[in-house]
């Protein structure tokens, strides 16, 4: 009887799990693609990053720090236990990139983009839309993961109390 009452909650939890898996996979795809294309054309990425209107010491540091930090997202998003940190880091990074691109759009539209894959050809406005999409995706993933955790805790406590 108790099991029957808990069935709808379990089904909802499974659907949320699948949604989280889809969102994390999309983010993994985006990060791996971005990292891969940056590494394949590392010299060009280096040049474009050094041309950004930031202090040279920061640009030089970003050349070597950005890719490892982006890479960190992949294992964090891959494993269930660390997924919440993966979504948080992705959200933080996508938010920073989005703010930076919005600033570039206003002040420095002619500068090259130090981005991976076909993105540099899109122009800053399309790149901004792309980033907003993945920022929202990270935020949704984070929210769903938190919701799912709360529901799992509630479900467990209901099962132990009965």
């Amino acid at each position: 009887m108790e099991e029957q009452l808990l069935q709808p909650a379990k089904k909802t939890s499974i659907k949320i799990d699948q949604a989280i898996l889809i969102l994390s996979s999309l983010l993994i795809l985006m990060w791996v693609f971005t990292i891969g294309s940056k590494l394949m054309t590392f010299t060009k990425f280096q040049m474009q990053l050094l041309a950004q209107p930031l202090p040279l010491w920061l640009n030089k540091m970003l050349v070597y720090v950005l890719i490892p930090v982006e890479l960190l997202n992949v294992p964090l998003l891959y494993f269930t236990k660390t997924r919440i940190y993966g979504f948080s880091l992705s959200l933080l990074m996508m938010l920073s990139f989005t703010v930076y691109i919005a600033w570039m759009l206003v002040f420095h539209e002619n500068l090259p983009c130090a981005c991976g894959g076909p993105i540099p050809k899109w122009g800053w406005d399309k790149h901004l839309l792309f980033n907003i999409f993945f920022t929202l995706l990270s935020a949704t993933g984070l929210w769903l993961t938190k919701t799912n955790r709360c529901e799992a805790i509630q479900l467990r406590s209901r099962l132990t109390n009965k």
């Binding site: 999309l26 693609f33 891969g36 998003l77 991976g116």
Partner: peptide, 17 residues
């Protein structure tokens, strides 16, 4: 799905670069 995403990401980046 996440495993497939990793493989697809590597394949796409190799192709575009």
């Amino acid at each position: 799905l996440p495993m497939f995403a990793i493989v697809a990401g590597i394949a796409f980046s190799a192709f575009t670069s």
